[in-house]
Design a protein around this nucleic acid. Structure first.
Length: 872
RNA sequence: GGAGGCAUAGCUCAGUUGGUUAGAGCGCUCGCUUCACAUGCGAGAGGUCGUAGGUUCGAGUCCUACUGUCUCUACCA
């Protein structure tokens, strides 16, 4: 890069080529290195159906900040990227696309369908990773993985077999959530509840002996076709005498018993519940307890099946109308109430799910959950912020068995075969060709695939080569930090933890850094249906990736949602531009000169900035180590803008303008601090910092691998820093007064200073001239200056003779106002310090600061009183 | 039903284990074409930190209750 920089920073010109420069240099690649400590992050794999959205942008910004920070600290830092096959989401998209061609899955057949799916993966799978590159993500692309690649598939198969062999995977007929649109079972976690208005039908079920009827209420009257009992609470006095009697099911004519079960709530509805074991999870449980028959009345696509008699072939909705109509006609309908209730819907297509009994594969959760809970409880894995461990416990402690089979084609096929001759079930790591029991060759593989989260659960170790014992697995596992949103703690994080503990004997990561979701400027969730999504790529194109990253990292505290607005991006862009212009300034002053090292002696302002910088280094490092990214970036912002640019550069201009060795010394300090600051900022704004770093004198090939700055005793100047602040306080005071009195900057004034800190102010004279518009500066123990404009600080009385501007009455009033405020402070402070409890119990350092503060205030009061006396 | 978050300037949000005078961005007011930057510079106004108690020498920060608000979870037919 040339030393001539454009006035306005233009990210579009540089980001692409900088990223390529990093790729070419292989700086993203991490290898097991015994001389270094590993630091590993596995990327939450985005879906191959996905496009980069703000959630990804946030997630990846945080990961990249952490990985770049650790890499610069000297760790062997691996950020392992990849994508997820997302079985149900991808299959749904492909089916949808086929529909436009008038095709169904069945038309194509499994094999052809999978060909299409892989073609889809080829086309769209790389789209999202290309978009991640635009963010500046420094992942090790050499190690990119896919949940259905050979290695990950082998891991899936191994885990399935292991769990099956341990009896932790079983096949059984259970009630599951069925999506009639996706035509598959889905797990409990995949059901989303939506409040919907509905009705509460009160229906009369007549007794078989003709002795009247029992009224019960239901929201799904069509399921009466599958009723096999009516339940009442055993203690319900209204119904106790009816227990054991028989009812005749309206519309159907089948006889069903009245049973007693404590599951029934006496006070809800009529206190009598129809029991449909095949189509309601609770009824299913009741059915098991009472050994009731299970009558499935629905087909896969939510039509009534042959068990529904005359209603066979109708959709559930049609059957509902027909049945209600008939109940009414035949006098079985008592009343209809309005009733809103929560209806379970499929998280992918939002079709109302039908609970139904079917044969599925399950993971037995309790034995897996326990050690996982233990791992978090003993701190082997920590959540940041901590409160999310409660959410984790809450879920893990109430976990139900996990339905893992899906009636889908895109995914890992379940490694189970059935012998068509003897019915033997074979679960195997390799495809079997003969039945081990009867020797038959007629084997049929289970048609189902696994829940997409089954493979994601293995991601932290399957991607490192497991079940092979690779050097990578040995070195990088367990990983360090998992960065993800709180919305997938159940789906993913919890499952990774128990899988890691079970398969590897170690939790997959020591820290789970949880962030919130990115909302729009009004605080609404960004969604397709609202159309309020902001495309990160559009933001990058307009403002640059650095501005986007900076925006997402700023003011974002762990676990909390954030609002995204273009104003914030503009502020970030302006900051980048500020930094850019500071760089231009430095380079302009350097010209062709070689600036290396630091001067032999430091001036007061040098010590001041070096001391401030030293503190910044420490604090930013601490913040990053504690995952306080928002705080770290805020400190960098404040330092660069308010300390470095607004003050130090302005202070340095005097020496820079002087030229020669004086200017070189100032440049040395300026370059040192500026380069260090840019280095600290690099994890947040990688592109612009690389650009600037390359233009500054530097060692090494890239800022990416330049050493992270460390706190240094050499720059520890607390006393000098404090002294210099006295001068800055005076400059601010003078500017303030001049501004209040509307004195134009062009009108210079003599500045007379009465102070005990003569050296500081004498040496500061040039700064007072340049930054406080002094024509000359005189420093003395005692100054007589009647009628001058007066500025009183805690360390000085400052006079500017500008008689024509003085209104004595006004000046008096102002000084008295200031005096009153100081006296109030004084009273508060001396009260505090004369409080025996405070002095004895508060830490000495706190008491000391308060003492100093009081001394300062009293000094100021003295000054004010003198000036007031002089005016009177 | 269960759990949790949030409530701080006009708006959006920071505020790290309790410790000076509670900060920033945007917006607002006043003044600046100062030789890095008007995507800028200087100065300023604006807050009883949701309400009521409590713990403490000291509370925006910890505890309790309440109010408002958002989310997760359960799924009463």
């Amino acid at each position: 890069m040339s030393r001539e920089l454009e006035k306005i920073y233009s990210p579009a010109d540089t980001e692409e080529k900088t990223y390529q420069f990093w790729l070419d240099g292989g700086y993203f690649h991490a290898e097991p290195d015994s001389k270094k400590t590993p630091y590993t992050i596995v990327m939450p794999p985005p879906n191959i159906t996905g496009q980069l959205h703000m959630g990804h942008a946030l997630d990846n910004t945080l990961q990249d900040v952490l990985i770049r920070f650790r890499r610069m600290q000297g760790y062997s830092a691996l950020w392992l990227p990849g994508t997820d096959h997302a079985s149900i989401a991808t299959e749904a998209k492909i089916v949808e696309a086929m529909k436009k061609e008038g095709l169904t899955k069945e038309d194509l057949g499994r094999e052809k369908f999978l060909e299409r799916a892989w073609a889809w993966k080829e086309t769209y799978g790389n789209r999202i990773t290309a978009q991640l590159r635009k963010m500046g993500s420094s992942c090790d692309w050499d190690r990119e993985r896919f949940t259905m690649d050979e290695g990950c598939s082998a891991a899936v198969r191994e885990v399935f077999c292991r769990l099956y062999e341990k009896g932790l995977i079983y096949r059984g007929e259970r009630i599951i959530n069925w999506c009639p649109h996706c035509l598959t079972s889905i797990s409990d976690a995949e059901v989303e509840y939506e409040e919907k208005p509905g009705h509460f039908w009160h229906i009369r079920y007549p007794f078989a002996d003709g002795s009247g009827y029992l009224v019960l209420a239901t929201t799904r009257p069509e399921t009466l076709l599958g009723d096999t009992a009516v339940a009442v609470h055993p203690d319900d006095e209204r119904y106790q005498h009816l227990i054991g009697k028989e009812l005749v099911l309206p519309c159907v004519g089948r006889k069903i018993p009245v049973i007693a079960d404590t599951y029934v709530e006496k006070d809800f509805g009529t206190g009598a519940v129809k029991i449909t074991p095949a189509h309601d999870p609770n009824d299913f449980e009741v059915g098991l307890r009472h050994d009731l028959p299970i009558i499935n009345v629905m087909t896969d696509d939510a039509h009534i099946n042959e068990n529904g008699g005359e209603y066979c072939g109708m959709t559930a909705a049609e059957a509902r109308v027909a049945i209600v109509e008939r109940l009414d006609r035949e006098g079985f309908l008592e009343k209809i109430e309005e009733h809103t209730h929560n209806v379970g819907t499929c998280y992918r297509c939002h079709t109302v799910v039908e609970p139904r009994v079917s044969m599925q594969w399950f993971v037995k959760m309790e034995p897996l959950a326990k050690p996982a809970i233990e791992a978090v409880r003993t701190g082997k894995t920590k959540f940041v912020p901590e409160r999310f461990d409660k959410i984790f416990y809450n879920w893990m402690e109430n976990i139900k068995d996990w339905c893992i089979s899906r009636q889908l084609w895109w995914g890992h096929r379940i490694p189970a075969w059935y012998c068509e001759d003897c019915g033997e079930l074979i679960v195997s790591r390799t495809d079997p060709d003969t039945c081990p029991k009867c020797g038959s060759k007629k084997l049929r593989q289970d048609p189902d695939t696994l829940d997409t989260w089954f493979s994601s659960a293995l991601w932290p170790f399957s991607t490192l080569g497991w079940p092979e014992k690779t050097p990578e697995l040995e070195y990088f596992y367990p990983t360090n930090t998992l960065v993800t949103g709180y919305d997938i703690i159940f789906f993913w994080v919890a499952r990774m933890i128990f899988s890691g503990v079970e398969q590897m004997g170690e939790t997959p990561f020591d820290t789970v850094y949880i962030h919130g979701i990115v909302r729009d400027a009004q605080g609404r969730k960004m969604s397709k249906s609202l159309g309020n999504g902001i495309d990160p790529l559009g933001v990058i194109a307009e403002y640059g990736a650095d501005a986007l990253r900076f925006t997402l990292a700023t003011g974002n505290s762990p676990g909390n949602d954030m609002r995204f607005s273009e104003e914030k991006v503009r502020a970030s862009r302006n900051f980048a531009n500020k930094l850019w212009n500071a760089a231009r300034f430095v380079l302009m002053n350097m010209g062709d000169k070689e600036i290396v090292g630091l001067p032999a002696t430091f001036t007061a302002e040098d010590k001041w900035i070096l001391s401030k910088y030293n503190t910044l280094v420490k604090e930013v490092t601490d913040n990053l180590e504690k995952f306080e990214l928002g705080l770290a970036v805020a400190k960098l912002y404040d330092f660069i803008w308010d300390i470095l640019c607004d003050w130090y550069i302005e202070l340095a201009k005097i020496r820079l303008n002087a030229g020669g060795e004086t200017a070189d010394a100032a440049l040395q300090v300026l370059v040192y601090v500026f380069r260090g600051t840019v280095t600290l900022l690099h994890p947040f704004m990688p592109f612009i910092t690389e650009e600037i770093w390359q233009a500054l004198p530097h060692e090494g090939d890239t800022i990416m691998t330049s050493p992270w700055p460390v706190w240094s005793e050499e720059f520890h100047f607390p006393g000098e820093e404090g002294d210099f602040e006295k001068l800055l306080e005076a400059i601010r005071g003078i500017r303030n007064r001049r501004s209040e009195m509307n004195v134009p900057n062009s009108r210079k004034a003599r500045v007379l200073i009465e102070t005990k800190f003569a050296k500081t102010f004498e040496e500061g004279a040039p700064f007072l001239c340049r930054l406080a518009y002094a024509s000359e500066v005189q420093v003395a123990d005692k100054v007589e200056a009647d009628g001058a404009v007066t500025v009183i600080t805690e360390s000085a009385r400052i006079f500017m003779p500008m008689d024509d501007l003085i209104d004595k009455a006004k000046e008096l009033e102002r000084l008295n106002r200031e005096l009153a405020a100081c006296k109030k402070d004084q009273a508060m402070l001396s009260g505090k310090l004369s409080n025996e409890n405070f002095v004895s119990r508060a830490p000495a350092a706190v008491v000391e600061t308060e003492r100093q503060r009081l001394a300062g205030v009293e000094e100021k009061i003295k000054g004010l009183e003198q000036s007031i006396a002089a005016l009177q």
